[in-house]
């Protein structure tokens, strides 16, 4: 598969200045980050608050550019200002709060806003709106007011709004933080569908460990550095290491790990309920 994102030595600092413009402090948000993502990948980024996850995400659609090092998205260097708009259309972002991302009073108008803004012909806009809403299972609600939708539905409308820009990649920065459990499931399964059926590259930032078990690869960040990376099963086999980095594991993984500590002979890195049940049945 093609390389979609290539980051090398990406470093970014937030510089605080006083009223006279003198530097008061420097905070290194990204510290020599390397990242390789193939087209069609589903990757998850974990890390404590302030570890640099969101700063990295903003680099991928050129909202920020590296102070040193470089980042290439779909063959385009984010340093090159001529590419900025193209990169933003290629890699769309979805944020935490759906209410801050929805602007129109009717669902289909909201989804059509992006393409309309870049001068897409009207017929084409409606085709895109329909396709995008269908892809997240919200076509039925196209004439509704977003105000009356649940959190999970609103967030799916926000994702449809990004899809209408025909991106190759969507970056989701804690898209489920404000949602109830079923809303979280709705958003997650919509995202997985986009990845599987439409081949959209997905970059998911989250604090819910359960949401990352279907990713191809997980990157764990701390203090601006990528400190662990691997398949979900590899990452979640390292329970103690994750705890040392103030992170958690999915509840099923934690239960399996606790049982193993108490002497049951279970393998490391159990991720799903089904795996745990079949292992326990084997023991009984």
């Amino acid at each position: 598969m093609d390389q979609f994102i290539k980051a090398r030595n990406v470093t970014f600092e937030y510089i605080r200045r006083d009223d006279d413009g003198n530097v008061e402090g420097i905070e290194t948000a990204l510290d020599k980050v390397d990242l390789d993502v193939k087209a069609g990948d589903f990757i998850a980024i974990l890390g404590a608050n302030g570890s640099g996850k969101s700063t990295l995400a903003k680099h991928i659609n050129a909202l920020l550019t590296p102070e040193s090092g470089y980042l290439i998205v779909d063959g385009k260097d984010t340093h090159n200002k001529d590419h900025t708009l193209a990169i933003r259309q290629t890699a769309g972002m979805v944020f935490q709060n759906p209410d801050n991302q929805i602007i129109a009073s009717i669902v289909e108008e909201d989804v059509g806003f992006g393409p309309e803004n870049i001068g897409v012909p009207t017929d084409e806009i409606w085709t895109r709106v329909e396709k995008s809403l269908r892809s997240v299972g919200m076509y039925h609600y196209r004439h509704h007011s977003p105000n009356r939708l649940s959190g999970g539905q609103k967030q799916r409308v926000a994702i449809a709004g990004v899809m209408a820009m025909k991106p190759k990649c969507i970056i989701l920065d804690e898209p489920t933080a404000m949602l109830d459990p079923i809303g979280r499931q709705e958003v997650l399964s919509a995202v997985r569908e986009l990845n599987k059926k439409n081949g959209i590259t997905v970059i998911l930032i989250t604090h819910y460990m359960e949401e990352t078990i279907h990713a191809n690869r997980i990157f764990v960040m701390e203090s601006g550095k990528v400190i662990m990376q691997g398949k979900p099963r590899e990452i979640f086999s390292r329970v103690e290491e994750l705890k040392d980095h103030h992170l958690a594991v999915p509840q099923v993984t934690e239960l399996a790990w606790e049982l193993k500590q108490s002497g049951l002979s279970l393998p490391d890195g159990i991720l799903t309920k089904e795996e745990l049940i079949s292992e326990l049945c084997r023991l009984s």
Binding site: D180, P181, I182, E210, Q251, V252, L255, K273, E274, I277
Partner: peptide, 23 residues
Amino acid sequence: LEEVGLMAPQVTYVMHALAEAGI
């Protein structure tokens, strides 16, 4: 609870599945 947008904690599902599997 699932019918009203909620769920039980993951471990509760594990326990029910274990019981159904005969443990």
